[in-house]
Simulated assay, not measured.
Amino acid sequence: MPSIKEFQVTFDCAQPERVARFWCEVLGYVVPPPPEGFATWDEFHRSLPREDQGAWFACVDPSGVGPRLYFQRVPEGKVAKNRLHLDVRVGTGLVGEERLAVLEAECARLVALGAVRVRLMPADDENESCIAMQDVEGNEFCLD
């Protein structure tokens, strides 16, 4: 059986473009060029039937290494904890106060973008410190 070479992470959300642009800022991702024949994504979305306008948005890793992130509009709101979340690895290899300083600095940057800090999970015998957060629509993620 061949191994899977590529995957996409899909987010259900109310405002796909807003959430996608937040994650572009978090991860250094970019919005890919619009489809051929369209100067902008707005122009492309306006060409769709009204009910499909703004129904999805995507962003990609400019290096081509990370997965594509796809955001699709769904009618229902978020009602429970995510069963899957992203860990944003900003403190890899750091420990103690040095790790906390990096996590706190990144947390402050993301809060300014609209994220919500949930709580600090301090280091224990098995894990280093991390910060639980929520994106602009309440999806959980961790600064790790």
Rank of each mutant, 00 (worst) to 15 (best):
G77L: 12
R89K: 14
E6G: 13
C130W: 15
L94V: 10
R73H: 12
I4T: 12
F71D: 01
G54D: 03
L69W: 06
R83M: 08
M133R: 06
R46A: 15
P67I: 02
N139K: 00
T92S: 14
D87R: 02
E137I: 09
G91P: 03
M121K: 12
T10L: 14
R89H: 14
G91C: 02
V111D: 01
V90F: 02
S47D: 06
F44M: 07
P122G: 09
C142A: 06
P33W: 00
H85M: 02
R73S: 13
I131H: 09
W41A: 02
D42H: 12
D135H: 08
D135Y: 07
K81H: 10
D87P: 02
E76N: 15
I4K: 11
E104Y: 07
A105C: 09
G138T: 04
V95H: 14
K5G: 13
S129E: 09
A20W: 02
R50T: 15
V116Y: 08
E140N: 09
P122F: 02
M133S: 03
E6S: 15
A20I: 07
R89L: 15
D61M: 00
V9D: 11
M121Y: 10
R50G: 14
A80L: 13
E76H: 15
D12S: 13
L69K: 09
R73M: 09
C24H: 05
W23E: 13
P35E: 02
V19Q: 13
D87Y: 09
S3M: 15
G54V: 05
G93A: 05
M133K: 03
A108T: 13
V31D: 01
P67G: 01
M121G: 08
E97D: 13
G37V: 00
L94A: 11
W56H: 11
C130V: 10
L69F: 05
R119A: 09
G114H: 00
F141P: 04
E128N: 12
V111Q: 04
A115R: 07
G64K: 06
L143K: 06
A132I: 10
R83P: 12
L94M: 12
A112C: 05
H45Y: 13
L100F: 00
N127D: 10
A55Q: 15
L143D: 08
E137Q: 04
A58M: 15
C142Q: 01
E140Y: 03
G28H: 07
A132W: 10
L27S: 05
V31C: 05
P122D: 03
A112T: 10
V26F: 06
V9N: 09
L143I: 08
L84K: 07
F141R: 01
V79K: 14
G114A: 01
F71N: 01
V102M: 07
A123R: 10
C142P: 11
P33H: 10
P122N: 04
V60T: 13
H45L: 11
P33T: 04
Q53G: 05
E76V: 15
P35M: 09
R119S: 11
W23T: 08
C24I: 04
A108N: 12
G96K: 00
P62S: 01
Q8P: 11
L113C: 07
P75T: 10
P35A: 02
V60F: 01
V111W: 05
S3D: 14
R83L: 01
S129C: 04
V116C: 12
T10E: 14
A14Q: 15
I131L: 04
L86M: 00
